[in-house]
Amino acid sequence: MLAFIFKRLGQSIIVMLAVALISFIMFRYVGDPVASMVSQEATIADQELLRERLGLNDPFYVQFFRFIMNALQGNFGISYRLQTPVADLIMSRLPATIELALTSATIALIVGIVAGVFTALNRKSPIAAGIMAFSLIGVSLPTFLIGIGLIYIFAVELQWLPSFGRGQVVDLGWWRTGFLTETGLRSLILPAITLSLFQMTLIMRLVRAEMLEVLRQDYIKFARARGLSKRAINFSHALKNTMVPVITIAGLQLGSIITGALITETVFQWPGIGSLFLSSVAVVDVPVMAAYLIFVGFVFVIVNLIVDILYYVVDPRLRVGGSSKGH
């Protein structure tokens, strides 16, 4: 188990280094860091002095190493646009994004798995057909249109829910949460649904496809031949085997939560890091872009690590060595 985790950790570090390299190249070579720091009147000599002081004339690897050391200490430079440290910007907006993403991921997982299992087990029922049709519409509707549609119906026409922002937040010192106030929770509803819808349909279709595949296997036929109850076959034998591929692919789909969050935050003016990134792209605020990239890479690596460990726990073929004879 430990060896397995260490191996995965090693791979994660390689991935992080690759992401850091891309983000460093962006940070260093897209736009001119000096031009954005000095005033209009600075002379060439002044600029050159600053360049030297910032170490921009050092060899590539020295600069890259410095970049990594800074990043490890949470130092990602200063935003060109807002002139505040990037790390502070990200920290102040992170809670909003995490609360939104967690809420919608939970909704998506629960509804997605339940609906997927249901449609796989009742392939011919009209309800399942309805869910499938709905899911296809879900996949075909761009997230931003879902958001606009929900705003139009529930905020503009019915006026039940707010159309933008996080509502009131409670400051817990290092974390500003919207979970504790009524307006906070009400503001969360529409964005969370918007964000979860795409994931939900994706997970549902995946669970359905995998479950149908598993139900065709010989061991399911053999389980039926042993006279096991429908419940034991469907929910113990079939579901557990379905989860093995679902875990992997669901982990890989994490990326779409990140983009989904970005779009949702934009539509609902949600003050998270997705909308921060988007406004930085518009004005080429490179330090923020670079830091966001590293953040995304980091989340990706962590989630993949969790997925691998889950996978390891579920599948004994990874856990217990090959066909060891004797003992």
């Binding site: 061991y219 053999f222 096991l228 085997n241 579920v314 599948d315």
Partner: peptide, 18 residues
């Protein structure tokens, strides 16, 4: 299972691996 038991062809696939 209770009154009629069954043995299938491929022992590699007739047992649930998990």
């Amino acid at each position: 299972g209770r009154r009629i038991g069954m043995v299938m062809q491929d022992p590699l696939t007739s047992l649930n691996p998990l």
